[in-house]
Amino acid sequence: MNNGKMIFVVDDDNDVLESMKLILESEGYLVETAIDGKMLTQKLETKIPDMIILDYRLPGENGTEIATNLKKNNETKGIPLIMVSSHDVGILAKRIGFSDFFEKPFDIDTLVTTVQRHLPV
């Protein structure tokens, strides 16, 4: 039973990816995961999600670099972005186009509330 909204989660830590997938799926979202910007780009070629959650520290391009590229592309520039990072990086991320951010380790409630705030069902 899902609400039809798709979220891509990008993080290089498998446990984090799995737990976020579990949590969001139990809230009814469809979730796909990627471990870096390259994998995200590949996925975006076949489908466009309703939200992307990006970890700041990723191998290769970091979260802000990926976001800059997404914003340049017509197909992806409208997708709400959530940053997972330290507080100061998060505040600055909001100023460059991220809809919101939260820190790690995160409470399940925080993750869910933040997602629902920008992707109401």
Partner: peptide, 13 residues
Amino acid sequence: KNTLAGIKSYTQL
């Protein structure tokens, strides 16, 4: 923090 995130998430679940 990644490690903590793993602990916290599964603990809360």
